[in-house]
Amino acid sequence: MDNVSSHPGDAIRIIDLTRQTDVQFWCRVFDVSMDQLRDAVHHAGHQVEQVERYLRQKNIHAL
């Protein structure tokens, strides 16, 4: 199975921290720094919905 894309509109959105374009895109979407995004992914996993939930709980800007 191919890697799941992290672009909006996909059924399952994954944040790929190894792709600079993904990191920049999701930092803009969530209005967070790279360090904050990496921390959120570390704690919540790579799925966008989990990261968004984590950031909201931490009171960090998220959508």
Rank of each mutant, 00 (worst) to 15 (best):
M1T: 15
D2G: 12
D2S: 15
D2V: 15
D2I: 14
N3W: 13
V4R: 15
V4C: 07
S5I: 13
H7W: 07
H7C: 05
H7L: 08
P8Y: 05
G9Y: 11
D10S: 13
A11V: 11
A11K: 13
I12R: 14
R13H: 01
I14Q: 02
I14L: 11
I14C: 00
I15H: 08
I15F: 03
I15A: 03
I15V: 14
D16F: 03
D16S: 04
L17F: 02
L17Y: 02
T18W: 01
T18I: 00
T18G: 01
R19K: 15
R19C: 03
Q20F: 00
T21R: 12
T21V: 10
T21A: 09
V23T: 13
V23R: 10
Q24S: 12
Q24I: 12
Q24K: 15
F25K: 11
F25R: 15
F25T: 05
W26L: 08
C27Q: 13
C27H: 03
C27V: 01
R28M: 00
R28L: 04
R28A: 09
V29Q: 11
F30Y: 10
F30N: 04
D31H: 13
D31T: 07
V32H: 03
V32M: 04
V32F: 02
S33M: 07
S33E: 03
M34P: 07
M34Y: 02
M34G: 04
D35S: 12
D35M: 06
D35V: 02
L37W: 03
R38P: 01
V41N: 08
H42I: 02
H42W: 04
A44Q: 09
A44W: 12
A44T: 11
G45T: 12
G45A: 10
H46Y: 10
H46W: 05
Q47H: 14
V48A: 09
E49T: 04
V51Q: 05
V51K: 06
E52W: 02
R53Q: 10
R53F: 03
R53D: 07
Y54I: 02
Y54F: 15
Y54N: 09
L55R: 11
L55T: 10
R56Q: 15
Q57G: 14
K58F: 00
K58N: 09
N59I: 00
I60Q: 09
I60H: 10
A62Q: 04
A62R: 04
A62Y: 06
A62F: 05
A62D: 03
A62I: 06
